[in-house]
């Protein structure tokens, strides 16, 4: 099977966010594979081990993304493509859709896996957008997948309920937490990853002009929420604390 994973490099979820001059400060921050994409990589490796074929990681980002790509290769992916997006102005999910669609248009694909959302932008748009442009079916938020006879049997999370469905390949799916437990790269895996093929492309290589990938939306401001003052710690015996709390919620906060 030709298995692809679309992966994004994101801020570590443990990082605090700082904003200077309207931009998130990246200096000194730790970066990781978007956690949902990590589930996608793990599942892609499992599908390859079961059905044969190859896993290719495709990422749109800057040159720093190589580090996360190598981690994915160390987990067990076979090869990777980095599409550098430095020339993209006001990039948004529309832009990423155009770039990925241009990359995939002449590829033989059985399945593309991605994360349900990226933990930075959090829009969750790129997967379904890409599937639409490629004419693939898509299933978001999957927690289980089995492939047999050119069809995928999938369980997806629908706001707490599980939907069980069947859909033919080629297909794009996005991973929800609970799909699997991503492996840590092994030491031999890390050594091997250094030699695995990583192709670097830019917009020219994909016959894209800057205008083709300009975002349809524009961010005009980024800001941090106001710091919350520490609240009131209630005193006394449990009974007193509980009575006071309920009274405060009713009369002061007015939420019950």
């Amino acid at each position: 099977m030709n298995i692809y994973v679309i992966m994004k490099r994101t801020f570590d979820t443990e990082e605090k966010i700082q904003i200077e001059n309207g931009e998130v400060v990246e200096d000194g921050a730790e970066f990781i594979i978007n956690p949902y994409d990590e589930y996608a990589i793990e599942e892609a490796i499992k599908l390859r081990d079961e059905h044969g074929g190859e896993v290719t990681i495709v990422s749109v980002g800057d040159e720093e993304t190589e580090k996360q790509i190598r981690t994915g290769l160390a987990m067990g992916a076979d090869k990777a493509v980095l599409i550098e997006d430095e020339d993209v102005e006001h990039g948004d999910p529309y832009s990423t859709e155009q770039i990925l669609a241009a990359y995939f248009k002449d590829k033989e694909v059985d399945i593309i896996l991605g994360g349900n959302i990226a933990v930075d932008g959090g829009s969750g748009q790129v997967g379904p957008r890409l599937a639409e442009q490629l004419g693939f079916n898509h299933v978001t938020s999957i927690v289980k997948i089995d492939i047999e006879d050119g069809k995928a049997n999938i369980e997806r999370d629908v706001e707490g309920d599980q939907e069980i469905l069947e859909v033919p390949l080629p297909l794009l799916v996005t991973a929800q937490q609970g799909l699997n437990e991503p492996r840590y790269p092994s030491l031999p895996g890390i050594m091997k990853a250094k030699k695995k093929p990583l192709e670097t492309l830019d917009l020219d290589d994909l016959d894209l002009e800057e205008d083709d990938v300009e975002g349809k939306t524009k961010t005009v401001e980024k800001y941090l929420p106001p710091e919350k003052a520490a609240g009131k710690i209630l005193e006394g015996e449990t009974e007193e604390q509980v009575t006071e709390l309920v009274s405060l919620l009713k009369n002061e906060a007015k939420v019950i």
Binding site: F11, T13, K16, I17, I19, V24, H90, V119, D120, G122, E214, G215, K216, T217, K218, T219, V220, E221, K222, Y223, L224, P225
Partner: peptide, 12 residues
């Protein structure tokens, strides 16, 4: 960043 920050967006 899941609510660690906010952005304002317009449609171009």
């Amino acid at each position: 960043y899941s609510g660690k920050a906010f952005e304002k967006k317009v449609i171009e």
